[in-house]
């Protein structure tokens, strides 16, 4: 058991569900958001150790959230993983300043591995 928390923002409930199961099993506390409307206040409040953001999420896009956070000196240390099925996903993620990328569809091993890299 560790005290690390992961915030995952993804509008597909299945993915949220799976991520929560997998990551909880690994001992992370998982914060789930199905849209990004309140994401900044959630981050402010919960201070997660890792963000996993869908690229196209209802509300502010994962790309834009990443840019905003990486411009904020109090938040930029938080690693960000962007996940997307988009062909150009990796490039967009790198451009925005994200530390990791997870291509959809991913399998749970990949999810576990990438989270472990950052936490």
């Amino acid at each position: 058991m560790n005290n690390k928390s992961v915030l995952i923002c993804e509008d597909d409930e299945g993915i949220i569900d799976i991520a929560q199961i997998v990551l909880s099993d690994k001992g992370y506390s998982v914060i789930c958001l199905v849209n990004s409307y309140n994401i900044y206040s959630v981050i402010e409040a919960k201070k997660p150790d890792l963000l996993i953001l869908d690229l196209w999420i209802s509300g502010t896009s994962g790309e834009e959230i990443t840019r905003t956070l990486k411009a904020d000196s109090t938040k930029k240390h938080i690693p960000v993983i962007i996940m997307s099925a988009h062909k150009n996903g990796p490039a967009i993620a790198r451009e925005a300043g994200a530390e990791g990328f997870l291509r959809k569809p991913f399998d749970i091993n990949e999810l576990e591995e990438i989270v472990e890299q950052f936490l």
Partner: peptide, 23 residues
Amino acid sequence: GIASHELKTPLTSIKGYNQLLER
């Protein structure tokens, strides 16, 4: 772009659940 997102997102979930089940 949207189609690839829309199609692949549920696929991700299916795959995820399948793997959970496998475990």
